[in-house]
Design a protein around this nucleic acid. Structure first.
Lengths: 385, 385
DNA sequence: CACTCATGGAGAAACGTATCTCCAAAGGCT
DNA sequence: AGCCTTTGGAGATACGTTTCTCCATGAGTG
């Protein structure tokens, strides 16, 4: 009692009942020390159940909520995970990556919450004030550019960083990516089997890993099978440029009879361009694009898409990050090596450890010359495009 | 100098250079007190520019980053704003609200970052552990149910809460919503002008404000113009139920010649049902649905949609919240009354203050008997951006 | 009885910052 | 010369936890 009175009586003010109850108030009301309160509430220390429940009851009665700020300061853990979003101009995320990001973020959020962490959305530009003001236990970055100063700075300051997308040249704790090469090769084979003789590619001008790996895989495949590459590039972040590039691709003298578009809107872009040139899909032109949108299930015709499985990626990224956070906590994050079965992990000894996730090709009418099942869907009265 | 040595020498350990530099290290290195460091870095106090820049330089050299946790504890401000997402089962957000939420969250994120705050995504279930572990300056809630215990608890503990969607019965600092009644009436008038004689409604079974207000507006309109209401309801969160309900609606003996669907997927649902019954859109059936998806710009035919302008809502909600956070800081949030011009605000004296935002009807082919303009849109010469 | 040991719990030291209070020194004024 | 004011900066405290250390007390054991 003396203890309780002593510690809680520290407050010089007299009648302030406006403030939220603190641990000292609970201790005073329960007639114990703050140590006991803390231990009782957190299930630590050696206390008889009677004391524990009594303290809990008092805390409940006073509406006591531990200060997250104080806990974070003391324990060094905030339970917060940063999620970077690239920003072009005012708006976060670009049109192209929106669906992917949304799905990925949704899964990441779910995974984080399931393990007691919350995601905080942060801009990819390191210069932003807000970065310094938030205590992060770790960060997820999406497709960091080569030599990303943000990632480097985070890593240097000891914050675990897990990247969605194989990082170019910055040190990360771990990364997760799709096997883009395998995916592209799979698509090209799929199109070949469907009868394509000359496969074109709609790709981007930027140098991120996804674009680069995919394009290289395409070029490599072309070299292997002896097809002349037929591709057009455009700045992927420009929502209007895709349509123009699609048009260019189909306007070429060596017009392809099948096209794979690397970005989400390319399906629509290519479909529109095909219409413009009087090409029937899939009869005259086979089409595949990379997209997470289920829009392509209901286009006319439905378009075959490659899904990067953003939900799996998001889940994996977050789990890897939390493992790193809870596993090591000492600047050098090497422990992860044994946390995960090396099934998917690349066999390199050199860090950072990477995980490759499979993609999924959702085959629809646009990439098959003969309709996969009965074409009954369109009784489709005269109203045609 | 003595001061500096004194304060930094407090650390008993000898050679630990592994830890991040703290304010004391900077003070020691610069030969000043931590007060001076703090003041110099935060632009406070009275210091000559020379001292300021010297301290800044030393801090930079040591790679000093103020501890966000300590700052939060001291100042009582975390710079964090919670954003609740409703969860059904494992995944956050439902199919129905996904597009709306994504757009709204995107705008909210942008607005928050612009004012130095970050958004942290949190589950709408108050029982989740994570709520207690995070220091929030305020919270945005989306469509809270009546008597939401989470909102009540937050409000009671002094955290400002701004709601997207007029709250049923819980106390909030402020709320923002669309004028759903005006929106529905506008749509019904629009359909009438297009020649509709009997307008049907596809609505939900839940009792949230959006569904309730919209349905009531429809019923009121029917009563006013003397039309017998024709509507079907279904659980909006079930992605499959919408198609069934759409089918039911068009299978009725008193089949409507125009339909408004309250939820995002209803456009597709209704279009498919119309095809099934051999109804041409817009000739036999006029169609409007509420959606944020631009899919409906490219359906056949394109479908008229009502946009709730989630970006505007998101921006407004966040700005209101931050105003409340920075304005009052004392439990009772009444200051907001004068922070915003009362243009849109409801004139009631009773709290909480609400803001009504306009909606936008994007008129497309599905709700017009005669094509609005020449349908020529695609000459579309390649050289366009 | 003299011990060891387990039990229950109190004290106090951080965690790292922001800020309030206060003091010394250096002008500026009559 | 004495007083007031401004400038520059140091000291100390509080923010609210968690946790390490340590001390009573009582029970078991020889």
């Amino acid at each position: 009692m003396t203890a309780a009175a002593n510690q809680s009586g520290r407050r010089p003010t007299t009648s302030r009942r406006l403030e939220r109850a603190g641990i000292r108030d609970v201790a005073a009301a329960a007639g114990v020390s703050i140590t006991t309160v803390s231990d009782a509430l957190n299930g630590k220390g050696r206390l008889p159940d009677e004391t524990r429940s009594r303290v809990r009851e008092v805390a409940e009665r006073l509406g006591y909520r531990p200060s997250a700020a104080a806990r974070t300061l003391r324990t060094g853990r905030s339970g917060l995970i940063g999620l970077t979003v690239t920003t072009y101009g005012e708006e976060p995320f670009t049109f192209t990556e929106f669906a992917y990001f949304a799905e990925m973020a949704r899964a990441a959020t779910s995974a984080a919450l399931g393990r007691g962490y919350a995601l905080v959305v942060l801009p990819a530009s390191s210069r932003h004030d807000v970065w310094g003001n938030i205590a992060l236990d770790g960060t997820v970055v999406i497709d960091p550019p080569d030599q990303d100063p943000l990632v480097s700075e985070l890593y240097r300051s000891g914050v675990p960083v897990v990247s969605d997308g194989k990082p170019g040249n910055c040190p990360v704790t771990a990364w997760v990516d799709n096997d883009h090469e395998a995916a592209v090769l799979g698509i090209l084979d799929h199109l070949s089997e469907a009868g394509a003789r000359r496969i074109g590619l709609l790709t981007g001008t930027s140098t991120d890993t996804y674009t680069r790996l995919s394009t290289e895989a395409y070029l490599g495949w072309c070299a292997k099978v002896g097809q002349e590459p037929v591709y057009e590039t455009y700045p992927a972040h420009d929502p209007a440029a895709g349509a123009v590039a699609a048009d260019r691709l189909l306007a070429r003298p060596d017009r392809p009879d099948a096209v794979y578009g690397l970005f989400d809107p390319n399906g629509t872009d290519l479909l529109a361009a095909a219409r413009r040139y009087g090409l029937r899909v899939p009869d005259d032109l086979l089409l595949v694009c990379c997209s997470e949108s289920d829009v392509y299930a209901t286009t006319e015709p439905p378009i075959t898409t490659l899904s990067l499985k953003p939900r799996k990626i998001g889940t994996t990224v977050v789990n890897l990050l939390i493992d790193a956070i809870e596993g090591v906590d000492s600047g050098t994050g090497v422990d992860i090596a044994r946390l995960f079965p090396p099934r998917f992990r690349t066999a390199g000894t050199g860090p950072p450890p990477g995980t490759l996730m499979p993609t999924e090709l959702i085959v629809r009418a646009s990439s098959q010359r003969r309709s996969p099942r009965t074409t009954v869907s369109p009784p489709r009265p005269p109203g045609e495009v």
